[in-house]
């Protein structure tokens, strides 16, 4: 009886009692969801174009953010120039990955390509720690002109606080998604990319360069990683712990589909808002800490009923 009360009555009484907390919870979930979606977007870009599940996306987030902070704080490079330099570094990284890792593995089974990205993860971990050190560093938020501080909204007899950096994260993520959507649908390279995603052989037969497409897509994933690193880093700090957040993107991908950009966004928002609301209003039943498993349980339920995700391409097996 008490359990039923905890599930069906107490959470709603709490929402009615402290409505501003509910609004704040939804907002926090929305921001987290957008940031999860950003990480998932990096996975989607590469999976869409090459069918490779890029295990290294998490470490790319750390690598890009650490490179940016280190260029500014250790080498005195002005923030915006450092940003441009890191974009260049991510471009070089994309070319290096295509030339050294992917090109020799063309035609190999998916498992081999996945293992290659695991190797890439270990390489970037080692290289990152050797070059930048393992200590956590502060993101150069103000130097990049990103807003800090907060605005309070007195509402429903209480207070809802909006961190300016969170608002900036949503605006930047929105612009990035819009830009990528336009790039995919309106440009020649974008159309070529979609062609490669649909059928490698057919794309090759009409003269599309697979190597060039891979460089572009890994570069785009690198830019997404940089933006993600800046936003997550500004909310906490830049350290190798950021890498593990990328694991949350797995659940987002299962929900949204491995090949869909809108899916990454919707999946991210469902997980972000869902896990926050569940933890605050129903977490007590489980002793708290439900965020550690909520996303994966939700993903498992989705797998049972819709294995291709909300927006993924329907799996058709011909026998």
């Amino acid at each position: 009886m008490e359990l039923l009360q905890q599930i069906f009555i107490e959470p709603f009484v709490l929402i009615a009692d402290i409505p501003d907390l509910f609004v704040q919870t939804i907002w926090e979930g929305f921001v987290s969801g957008i940031l999860y979606a950003l990480i998932a977007l990096g996975f989607v870009l590469i999976f869409k174009a090459s069918g490779v599940f890029n295990f290294a996306q998490g470490i790319m987030v750390v690598f890009a953010a650490l490179a940016l902070v280190s260029l500014h704080t250790k080498f005195g490079v002005p923030a915006w120039i450092a940003l441009l330099m890191v974009i260049g570094i991510m471009g070089l990284l994309a070319m290096g990955i295509e030339r050294i890792v992917l090109r020799p593995l063309v035609g190999q089974p998916d498992a081999i390509l996945l293992m290659a990205t695991i190797g890439l993860t270990l390489f970037l971990q080692g290289a990152g720690e050797t070059i930048f050190g393992g200590e956590p560093q502060s993101m150069i938020t103000e130097e990049l002109g990103l807003p800090t501080g907060a605005t309070d909204w007195e509402v429903l007899g209480g207070r809802v606080t909006f961190q300016h950096i969170d608002v900036a994260a949503i605006v930047i993520a929105g612009l990035m998604v819009a830009g990528l959507a336009l790039f995919f649908s309106k440009t020649r390279i974008g159309r070529a990319l979609r062609a490669v995603a649909d059928d490698h052989q057919a794309a090759l037969s009409v003269g599309i360069s697979l190597n060039q497409i891979w460089v572009i897509v890994w570069f785009a994933a690198g830019i997404v990683a940089l933006v993600t690193g800046i936003m997550w880093g500004a909310r906490s700090d830049v350290s190798f712990a950021l890498e593990v957040i990328a694991l949350k993107a797995l659940a987002v991908l299962i929900l949204g589909g491995f090949t869909s950009i809108p899916g990454a966004i919707v999946g991210g928002l469902i997980i972000g808002i869902g896990e926050k609301v569940f933890e605050v209003y129903w977490g007590g039943i489980f002793g708290g800490g439900t965020e550690a498993w909520f996303a994966y349980v939700l993903a498992l339920i989705f797998l049972l009923f819709r294995p291709q995700g909300l927006f993924g391409e329907k799996i058709i097996e011909r026998v």
Partner: peptide, 11 residues
């Protein structure tokens, strides 16, 4: 995994 994402705990 939530070390750098503690929104829920602080809510």
């Amino acid at each position: 995994k939530e070390m750098q994402s503690q929104g829920s705990q602080w809510l």
